[in-house]
Each structure stands twice: as C-alpha cells, then as structure tokens.
Design a binder for these strands. Structure first.
Lengths: 236, 236
DNA sequence: TCAAAAGTGTTCGATATACACCCATGC
DNA sequence: GCATGGGTGTATATCGAACACTTTTGA
C-alpha cells in the first residue's frame, strides 16, 4: 500500500466552544496556549477508553467545576493540514510529551453563566471570556470552530430553548432576555412584540420581585420553570 | 501513565446513511458485511491524508458513481464498546488485513434517487434498498446511526429544502412530493392545504406535461428550479 | 421636573388549519 | 356510468410585524 493510501491512525481531541453572555454580547471562553502568548479554545486529547462526550464533559468540569454541564457535539474537524503549523506541532509534542502527528478533533458547544467562578485549573490556564466580536487569531482551526459554533447556537436554542437559560442569571429581566436574543440572532426585536411573545410562553414566569437600586422604574424579574418546560415538551 | 489514561490512538472510519424514497417510504442503502450474511451501512476506514468529508465522498462515489453527491456530517460515534463484538473485531481484521483496535466513526447522511443504477462495486457488495421500517439488526452501532440519521433528515431538509429533490425524479407529481413529506415527517398532510403551500413556493414549478397511461385523471408534473431556489436563498 | 427605562394594545397581513365539491380519465 | 385520484376555494384562528404613549423611579 502506498503511503498516501495508509489508513488513518490518529489521535483524537475534543475542543469546546463555551459561550457566556455579558448582558450585551456573546463571549467565548479562551485559555492560554501554555508556554506561549497565544490563546485557544479549551480542549484535550481524549483517552483510549473514553468516548468524546465524556471527554468533553471532563474538560468542561476541569475548567468550570460543573459536573453535568450540557454540551452538544456539532462537528468533526479532520483536515490533514489543521495541525500542520510547525509551532502547533511542536506545542503538541511538548504538551503531550510525545509526537502527536495526525490529529482530528470533535468540536463541542456549551453554555455557561459568565459570572461563574472558574476552577483553579482555569486560573492556571488564564481562562478568560472574550467577546465573539473580538476574537484573536488562534492556533489550529480554532477560529473556524468558534465561527461554526456561533451558527450552531441558533439551531440548538431553536430545538431546545431551555439552553438559553444557562446563559442568564436564575432571575433575569425581560430586557436581559431580549438582549440575549438580540446577541444570538444578531438583530433587534421590537420590545412590545417581544414581551407579548414571552408572555405566551408557559415556562417563563414573572416573579413578584423587582429590581432595586436602579435609577429608573424597576423591572420585574422572571425565572425559567423547568417543570413547566418538561411538561410542555412531553406533550409535543 | 496507567493504561486507562493512555491517549486515544485510533482508526477513523466514516459510515454513510444513504436514503432513497420508493414513493411510499424512506429506504436506506445497505451492503453485505462481506463474508457474512449480515448487512451494514456502507462505510470505510479513511486514509491518512484524507479528511472525513472527502472520505465520505469517495465511498459514495464508489457505490453510486455520483461524483458530487451532497452529504452532511452529523455525528461522531466513539463509544469504546462500539467495535467490541468479537465477530466485528475479527471481521475488521480480515477486511483491512490488520488488527484495527480502537475505532471511531464519523456518520454522514446522504440522499439518492432510489432507481439510480448503482456501480459494479455496489453490485459486488450486494447493495440494496431496505425500508427504514424494516431494518435488520446490524453490526457495530449501525442501527443507532441509522436512527439518528432519520432524525437528521428533518433538520437538513428544513434548513435546505433543495435536498428533498434529490429523492424525487426530475419530474414529479404533487402526490409524490406529498408522499415524501409524509414519509419524512411521519404524518399526514391535507391535500388542499399542501397544494396551496407548494403553489406559493417559487422554485417548484408546474410543467405543462402530464402523466399518461393512468387509470384516472392525469396529474401535472412539477420540477425543481434550482436557479429560482438560489436566487431566493441569496435574497434571505 | 427631568431622564431613563418599564410596560402596555391595536391593527394588519401572512400563514396554518379545517373542511367539501367538481373534474378528467380509463375501464 | 362509475371508480379513481386530481385539483380547487372559503372561513377561521394564530402569529408576527408595525407602531406611540403612559408609568415609575431616582437623581
């Protein structure tokens, strides 16, 4: 068999695009590419007896301390030249203590409250939130992964709107919810129509509690009612 | 490093769920698991310098002779026990002339006219269409892949309705189109409302030509107008 | 009393649903 | 002339889009 016809024998990694919402814009969690000034998506080679879903869960848990974070696999990136840059090749070898060679990655999407305290491991890796409008150039194909993850968010929240509430505080105002929709769909929503639409949704419930200490009329808080959500889903 | 902590080093395959439509039901293209009586999804290990998209294109082209078949990656299957059945392990070793060990697969979805003449390679592999309601037990996790592919079709055709017309003859009747929708969405559509809806779609155009040799009033043929379709998509 | 954001209602057009009858053709 | 499937229209409900003013609160 000619070299070009050898069967692929590859290391497999997962990379996670973890999004947070700062009240205005989506942010993505980047970590330092250790030993360099560059930043990258969190990710890791996976272990022999692991599947990619658990590997992604492991990486997320290491960074955020959340054990059961929801995540969604959205794409395999396997271009032969995705890990051909000499810097990247050398970095892989140093990080994993061996030559890595052919490397394919399974990309995951996850959502996280942006003010959540990250783990010590995250601090060591200088994890930080970066607005999606201002992403740096990243190693491997991480810029492409981040881009495709952004598109994927829309599809995910359409098929499972409960995901949205992983980006918001437990109690949130209508304005915050609307800002989130605007950040995801990259368009404006009319306030009046938006309120009407939300009012029709049984699993978003208005609380009696209102904002305090605001320099204008205080807004009501709302919360996500998971029980009502599950009931609604079941009946569909 | 303990054995359980070894980094995964794996062979990578692609598996294709190729759907056809027999006028009544979706069918999926199965091939013989060579040397056995079992049937499986078409697939193959991929080569070292290939990415998964081209590998899937290669496998599809080998079977159907279509060079530019549209296909959609939808999921990586990587459970450690997906290729642990002793029969499957032995079959892999025999087929690929080596022990294969850890194997992950990237699953693809594709659509094909069911009356298309398949290639000589397909005939050698006893390729045949199998109604999705009547799938046999298949090796590896191919049953699960087929199931998830079925769900994926709906999402694909919603985001890219042009895909539907890869399942229909070039000229098709309204009844055929409706039957296809019914097969995909597993529900009935009211004939009158369906016709109205289709009539509003600019890229489905009615031809003057009608059926002949039918024992009742002849139906008009319709065709898919790709130019109108692309124009519509661009303007969105 | 002013600034700033909250909150609310009506109208209109488009779309989805429900439903029943006449038409063309081959036998 | 009848059986078979083709083809059409109307009424209603729902949803999304457009659009402007009053209310509350703190400064």
């Amino acid at each position: 068999m000619e070299p070009s016809q050898e069967y692929m024998y590859a290391h497999v990694s997962i990379d996670c695009a973890i999004f947070g919402f700062d009240g205005n814009e989506l942010n993505i969690l980047l970590i330092e590419k250790e030993g360099t000034a560059a930043q990258k998506l969190p990710g890791s080679l996976i272990y022999q007896m692991e599947d990619t879903d658990s590997a992604a869960g492991r990486v997320l848990c290491e960074l955020t301390g959340i054990r059961k974070m929801s995540l969604r696999q959205f794409r395999c990136f396997s271009s032969p030249d995705r890990a051909m840059d000499p810097d990247d090749v050398a970095w892989l070898e140093k990080t994993y203590g061996r030559p890595v060679g052919r490397l394919i990655t399974i990309a995951y999407l996850s959502l996280c409250r942006i003010n959540r305290t990250l783990s010590a491991a995250a601090r060591r890796k200088a994890a930080h939130w970066c607005p999606v409008s201002d992403l740096p150039a990243m190693p491997f194909d991480h810029n492409r992964i981040a881009e495709e993850a952004l598109c994927e968010i829309r599809q995910w929240t359409e098929s499972e709107p409960a995901m949205l509430f992983e980006l918001l505080p437990v109690k949130f105002t209508m304005a915050e919810l609307r800002a989130l929709y605007e950040a995801i769909y990259l368009r404006r929503f009319d306030i009046r129509n938006f309120c009407k639409k939300i009012a029709r949704i049984p699993y978003i419930v208005r609380l009696d509690e209102k904002q305090t200490d605001v320099a204008h009329r205080a807004a009501h808080y709302y919360k996500f009612d998971r029980i009502a959500y599950n009931q609604l889903r079941q009946s569909m």
